[in-house]
């Protein structure tokens, strides 16, 4: 049978199907315990509606490869961070027109008065002359930006603090 880690790691994110859940940092662990496949995932956001689909997709992928006993656990700790998105995941995001998140060295809430968030680079023309259109986007993990260089709007995968 194919390795549990390889099967679970190859499952695509339903919202961002360019990336695997491994590349997004959602897959925390996957291993075999005898005849049982044990997989642990963590949500990007507490309410991420894609999580149920991801669980179902992992189970289907494992069953297709012959695993009958499957345990899929969801854990909150340690809390997911956009820093966990792999280098290949970042490249794929950029190719899909989504600016990957910058590294977030900060911890804790920003002090007032408020500082602007770190600005992304346009995934199309690489210009840094960009502006935020909306802090929230079509999914919990995306924000809307616009490039003043090529005048195209684009999505930005929000940077997410590594620790609270």
């Amino acid at each position: 049978m194919v390795n549990v880690r390889d099967i679970a790691g190859g499952v695509l994110d339903p919202e961002l199907p360019q990336l695997t859940i491994d590349e997004l940092g959602i897959l925390r662990d996957a291993h075999a315990e005898g005849q049982r496949a044990v997989v642990t995932i963590t949500p990007t956001y507490t309410a991420c509606p894609a999580l149920e689909t991801i669980r179902a997709d992992i189970a289907t992928a494992l069953r297709d490869e012959g695993w009958a006993e499957i345990d899929i656990h969801t854990v909150f700790a340690p809390a997911w961070s956009s820093d966990w998105i792999t280098d290949s995941g970042r490249e794929k995001l950029e190719r899909a027109g989504i600016a990957p998140p910058g590294a977030m060295p900060e911890t804790g809430v920003r002090n007032l008065p408020l500082l602007p968030p770190p600005a992304p680079r346009c995934p199309r023309c690489e210009s840094t002359d960009v502006e935020q259109l909306s802090r929230f986007g079509p999914t919990a993990c995306l924000a809307l930006w616009r490039c003043r260089g090529c005048a195209e709007p684009f999505e930005y995968f929000k940077s997410h603090l590594s620790c609270g």
Partner: peptide
């Protein structure tokens, strides 16, 4: 603690 550590990041936003 795990729920709170996750939620505090969302709350900061």
């Amino acid at each position: 603690a795990a729920i709170a550590a996750k939620a505090v990041k969302e709350t900061a936003y």
